[in-house]
Each structure stands twice: as C-alpha cells, then as structure tokens.
Amino acid sequence: MPAKASQARRSTAPAPKIHAGAAAAFYVLDHQIGFALRLAHQRHCALFAARIGDAELTPTQWAALAKLWQTGPTSQNRLGRLTGMDASTIRGVVNRLIKRGLVDTRPDKEDARLLLVGLTREGTQLYRALAANALEISEQTLAPLGKDERETLMRLLDKMR
C-alpha cells in the first residue's frame, strides 16, 4: 500500500468504542502507537550501536552517564527516576558502569545513609569523548523529519511522558 494511502487511514481522533468481538476486524498492527514507537526505537538503537564508538556501551548506560554529567553525583534511586529506569534496571546499569570504572559510589556527606553515584575520571573522559557521537545519533534518528516535524514530535513525546 502506498505510504500516503496508509497515512490517510491513520487518524488522530480517539478510536471509536468497538465491541470486543468486532475489535479483531479493526485492529491493524501497523497503525498502533506501540508498534510504531518500537520500530522507531529499534532504528535508534541500531544507530546507537553502530555509531556511539564504544561497543560495550548500551543506550541505558549512556543515559546514566549523560544524566550524571548533567546532575553530578546523585542517589541510585534518583538516577533511576531521572533516566526512566526501574530500580532493578538502574541497579544493573550502575553495577556494569562500576565494573568498567566509569562510575563509583560514595557516602553522601550530608546523609551517611545515602550512597551517591558519580562519574569517575574515566567516566567523565568517556562522556566527553562520545557526546558528539551521541548528538549525531540523535540527528540520524530524526533525519527523515523536517525541522518543524522534529519539534512537533519532541513536543508530543514530552506531553506523553
């Protein structure tokens, strides 16, 4: 089916209420938001793997490094919230970054019960070395879109968070 015809069938209006038994006739996977987001995410992850410049670094690890660069040392719990990762995921990410010597943990000077995660010298150097690659990956991910479309997409995604 031509792209324009496919796009013409998509609607931004709320889906009509459909009887559960009839839903199967109306459900088209290619027109579902989750499917479209997953395909876009897969494309972005493929670009990331090919272009980040560190074969061991994952997008979630990069997110943690980038957020630590922006915020400075913070608790693992807060880092998880800031990067959209649940507790077990951020724990694994931090542990792998510790093993690579890119982050370390230290007690909070104001609250000894709290452990802060922060970039090491190696983590800071890696972040600085790869930041331009990460910007290029974002650029390539959005390459099919014009400037206004990019702004609209980001605004709409922000609205959905």
Rank of each mutant, 00 (worst) to 15 (best):
E56M: 12
L130P: 06
Q125E: 15
K17C: 10
Y27C: 07
M160I: 15
I18E: 08
A13L: 15
A25G: 06
T83V: 13
G72N: 00
I137A: 07
T152S: 12
H41Y: 12
W62L: 10
K99G: 13
D111P: 00
I52T: 00
K147P: 01
G53M: 03
G80L: 07
G53T: 02
T83N: 01
R38N: 05
I90D: 02
E122S: 04
L102W: 11
P2F: 08
R113L: 12
A129C: 02
A24D: 07
R161S: 14
T74R: 02
D86P: 02
T58Y: 05
D30N: 00
G118V: 05
G80W: 11
I90N: 00
S75I: 06
A13E: 13
Y27W: 02
A66H: 06
L115Q: 14
A36Q: 06
G34D: 11
A49N: 01
R91L: 09
F48N: 05
D108L: 07
P59T: 00
K17A: 12
R100L: 15
E151A: 15
E110T: 04
I98S: 09
K67G: 07
H44V: 10
M1D: 10
D30V: 03
H19Y: 13
I137C: 11
F35K: 06
A63R: 03
V103C: 08
Q42Y: 10
R100Q: 15
D30G: 00
K159Q: 14
R150W: 07
A134Q: 05
H44C: 06
N95Q: 13
E151L: 14
L145A: 10
P16N: 12
A3D: 07
D148P: 00
L47Y: 10
I33A: 11
R161V: 15
G84R: 05
A46W: 00
Q125N: 11
A22K: 01
R78G: 09
G84T: 08
E136C: 10
H44D: 06
P73Y: 07
